[in-house]
Amino acid sequence: MGIKLLLNDYYDLLKLMHDNEAIILDEKVIPLTQQQIAATLNYSKMKVNSMFGVLQKEGFVEQKTRGKYVLTDTAESIIKTIEKLSD
């Protein structure tokens, strides 16, 4: 899938995660639950859960602990590139 994966709902999900990253004990984490993400993006929790699986498989998101995720450097780089292109 690669970059095409990020030109749709997946990018919206990654961007929301990026915009809500927090640093806890010197580590970036996304403190949002899948339910909060689903409500914010107006998606079902099932859709968000499925999307997380794809994003993990493609190497854009890593699960640190149950319910706690981080964006990979690849995801961060792509978000910054897309933001520059859209300016």
Rank of each mutant, 00 (worst) to 15 (best):
M1E: 04
G2C: 02
G2N: 13
G2P: 03
I3C: 07
I3P: 05
K4N: 10
K4F: 15
L5E: 02
L6K: 01
L7T: 14
N8C: 15
N8Y: 12
L13C: 05
L13G: 01
L13H: 04
K15L: 07
K15G: 01
L16V: 03
L16K: 01
M17Q: 02
M17W: 06
D19T: 00
N20P: 04
N20Q: 09
N20L: 01
E21H: 07
A22R: 15
A22P: 08
A22H: 15
I23P: 03
L25C: 05
D26M: 07
D26N: 12
E27A: 14
E27T: 12
E27P: 04
K28Y: 14
V29P: 04
V29C: 07
I30Y: 00
I30P: 00
P31L: 06
P31I: 03
L32C: 04
L32T: 04
L32A: 05
Q36I: 01
Q36L: 04
A38P: 06
A38F: 01
L41C: 00
L41P: 00
N42Q: 15
N42K: 15
Y43D: 00
S44H: 13
M46K: 06
K47G: 00
K47V: 00
K47I: 00
F52D: 02
G53Q: 09
G53F: 00
V54C: 02
V54I: 13
V54H: 02
V54F: 00
V54T: 11
L55N: 06
K57E: 11
E58D: 10
F60D: 04
F60A: 07
F60I: 09
K64A: 08
T65K: 12
T65F: 12
T65Y: 11
R66H: 15
G67L: 02
G67Y: 09
G67C: 05
G67H: 07
K68C: 11
K68R: 14
K68Q: 11
K68Y: 11
K68V: 14
Y69Q: 04
L71E: 07
L71C: 09
L71P: 08
L71Y: 10
T72G: 06
T72S: 07
D73Y: 15
T74G: 08
T74M: 11
A75C: 04
A75M: 03
E76A: 12
E76C: 13
E76D: 12
S77E: 09
S77V: 06
I78S: 09
I79Q: 05
I79T: 05
K80H: 10
T81R: 15
T81A: 15
T81N: 08
I82L: 15
K84Y: 10
S86L: 13
S86G: 10
D87Q: 11
